[in-house]
């Protein structure tokens, strides 16, 4: 019962979604929208579980006085301030929540991602040594694409931006298309396994 009921529930939900795809009746479309709303509601409850995991990690670190536990205070206080501001004052444009988002989260996110510009250069040096034909192709393509995205590429050779566009629209599309076919077939196979109860890893262990 502990396993068969959820498998049955998943099968019914999935079977309905397959059927509604082929039935363009308003009642089916409304049911589809309602079910998608249901998933958002369930997802909101699931977020609490994720937040609990974050809190537990940091509270545990503080309680055991592990190295750097002071930073856990910073994370928890930041969370509490942003959350309370959002819930109490609202999240509309021009609100304090929006101010914190624009002046704290956006710059932090952009700066953290821009740090990769420095580290990716050293990673590229280690990775991009042309030791095999495949590595050489990877290296040459990356160099042409990078040069094609900046004015100096056109300055070196006028056709570099056009070459970049051609790489992006022909061989890259060909490879991505092959990957997408594989992904789509994999999604269908995995979905069928989930609906038929063959794939049960998402239900965890136990009986």
């Amino acid at each position: 019962m502990r396993l068969h009921i959820p498998i049955g529930l998943g099968f019914l939900a999935g079977a309905f979604m397959i059927v509604q795809f082929f039935v363009p009746h308003p009642s089916f479309e409304e049911s589809y929208k309602a079910l998608m709303d249901w998933t958002m509601i369930i997802g909101a409850f699931a977020l609490v579980l994720g937040l609990q995991s974050l809190f537990r990690t940091h509270i545990d670190k503080i309680r055991r006085r592990r190295q750097g536990y002071g930073y856990s205070f910073v994370a928890l206080i930041s969370f509490a301030v942003m959350f309370m501001v959002g819930i109490v004052h609202g999240a509309k444009p021009g609100s304090l929540f929006d101010w914190l988002f624009m002046n704290v989260q956006v710059p932090l996110e952009a700066t953290i991602f821009s740090l990769l510009a420095f580290f990716i250069a050293s990673a590229a040096y280690r990775t991009f040594r042309a030791r095999t034909p495949e590595a050489t192709i990877l290296l040459l393509t990356a160099v042409v694409v990078m040069l094609g995205r900046v004015p100096i590429g056109e300055f070196i050779y006028a056709q570099v931006p056009e070459a970049t566009e051609w790489i992006m629209s022909v061989p890259t599309v060909a490879a991505k298309r092959g990957i997408m076919f594989g992904v789509a077939l994999g999604v269908i196979a995995t979905s069928l396994r989930i609906l038929l109860g063959i794939e049960r890893s998402h239900l965890g262990g136990g009986r």
Binding site: L9, F22, L35, I42
Partner: peptide, 24 residues
Amino acid sequence: RWPIAFVMGLYAGLSIPRSVQEII
């Protein structure tokens, strides 16, 4: 497991016809 199975089943059912129509 119930909510997880429900959401997984829903998206699994949705992704089968969508993968065929919108990707393949």
